[in-house]
């Protein structure tokens, strides 16, 4: 078996995954494309394992691990997608633009819970677990507001 064949297939598969990640709007399709890329990596791992005749079978074991991690990733990713969907009624990634500046974009909705703060005018709520120093009273108010969410 020439190693080049599976490697080329893997490279092409990876590129297709890249295209999917970059071009798809639906978050679930983006997740699928990520799976494609992971599979390309898996193929690479297996091929090199076979080619190098690894005694520890590192490539194949790692492939198994990647599969497991991919499963976990899909689980978490879908949970996030669902949570976004619950709050926004949409999972189009190009409409989730809370990272952008306010005056450029149309004032979209609130920050999704758990995905970081968004609205500059809102002071971070005085939660019970609010950490001591709030660094920036104006602007993002990022640090003070992020802490409680990271605690979850």
């Amino acid at each position: 078996m020439h190693v080049v064949y599976p490697l080329v297939v893997s490279a092409l598969l990876f590129s297709i995954g890249v295209y999917g990640v970059l071009a798809r709007r639906n978050a679930i399709l983006v997740l699928m494309s990520v799976e494609l890329m992971l599979n390309a990596v898996n193929l690479n791992l297996v091929v090199f394992d076979v080619w190098l005749r690894d005694r520890l079978h590192g490539g194949q074991v790692l492939t198994l691990f990647v599969i497991v991690i991919a499963a976990a990733e899909v689980g978490l990713g879908l949970a996030i997608v669902l949570s976004v969907f619950r709050n926004r009624r949409t999972i189009d990634v190009d409409r989730l633009r809370d990272l952008s500046e306010r005056d450029l974009m149309s004032p979209t909705t609130a920050g999704p819970p758990g995905s970081g703060p968004s609205g500059p005018p809102t002071p971070p709520d005085a939660g019970p677990a609010a950490p001591g120093p709030r660094p920036a009273p104006s602007g993002s108010g990022s640090a003070g507001a992020l802490d409680p969410s990271e605690a979850g």
């Binding site: 990640v21 989730l96 952008s100 500046e101 450029l104 974009m105």
Partner: peptide, 14 residues
């Protein structure tokens, strides 16, 4: 440059 910072994470990844 700011126009590029439109909050679209896909664009950033691109």
């Amino acid at each position: 440059l700011r126009r590029a910072q439109n909050g679209n994470a896909q664009l950033y990844v691109t």
